[in-house]
Write a protein that binds this DNA or RNA. Structure first.
Length: 214
DNA sequence: GTCCTGGCTA
DNA sequence: TAGCCGGGAC
């Protein structure tokens, strides 16, 4: 909570997730895997312009057509496959209804999302939090790096370990978890980069005496 | 050349 | 655990 307060006091609300619809948020969550968001926006713009941003289109258009549209997001062949995998999952499991999907319980839906090829824990949790408004903490590479550099974890924890650790330390508040993940991403892009830039960091006073650990 | 709101496979 | 996917921005 101290981390959240410091980050929020410094940068304020981050206005995530910038998607128009729940489907668009889910598509964005898949497209942004290991990819800069600016490139995802280009891909989503292409999908919209080509009328591919619908469940029906994702189900019916050939994978190669989807791939061409999302090319700016990188990994376009893999991601085209993943978008179609999610679309067929939604059709098969919930009759194509996002409303039915999001009326499922969080643990049940999470388990089912993880069974979709191309949806791992971070993508599943992003979907739950940002499209489903469920109080879920999203762990990402920045989260791990920030915690490791401050000596709060050993570094060999699994995704589920870190998620449990953070959930436990935080209230189950959708808005807070929404902002916190976005703020941690901002922190990772500005200060907690591959090479740390601690001077001026909102968390500078939380550093161990000898500085960052890695 | 490095990095980007990961996940799958061998 | 390493290698792979990959274009775009810097």
């Amino acid at each position: 909570m101290e981390v959240f307060r410091k980050l929020f006091q410094t940068w304020g609300p981050q206005h995530w997730w910038p998607g128009r619809t729940r489907l668009e948020i889910i598509v964005g969550a898949i497209l942004t895997q290991n990819t800069n968001w600016a490139n995802v926006e280009k891909a989503i713009t292409n999908l919209r312009r080509k009328r591919l941003l619908s469940l029906h289109a994702l189900l019916t258009f050939p994978e190669s057509t989807i791939a061409q549209a999302i090319r700016p997001a990188g990994y376009y062949n893999q991601k085209a496959k993943r978008l179609k995998a999610f679309a067929s999952f939604l059709e098969r499991t919930y009759g194509g209804s996002l409303r039915r999907m999001f009326s499922d319980t969080t643990p049940q839906l999470r388990q089912r999302l993880l069974s979709v090829p191309g949806i791992g824990p971070e993508t599943a949790d992003s979907i739950l939090l940002y499209a489903g408004r469920r109080p879920v903490f999203v762990v990402d590479a920045y989260t791990r790096r920030v915690m490791q550099r401050h000596g709060w974890i050993r570094g060999n924890e699994t995704y589920e370990d870190l998620a449990a650790l953070c959930q436990q330390a935080l209230p189950a508040d959708v808005q807070l978890l929404n902002e916190l993940h976005a703020l941690l991403v901002r922190l990772g892009k500005t200060h907690c980069r591959t090479r740390p830039r601690c001077p001026g960091c909102p968390l500078e006073k939380l550093l161990p005496p000898d500085g960052p650990l890695m």
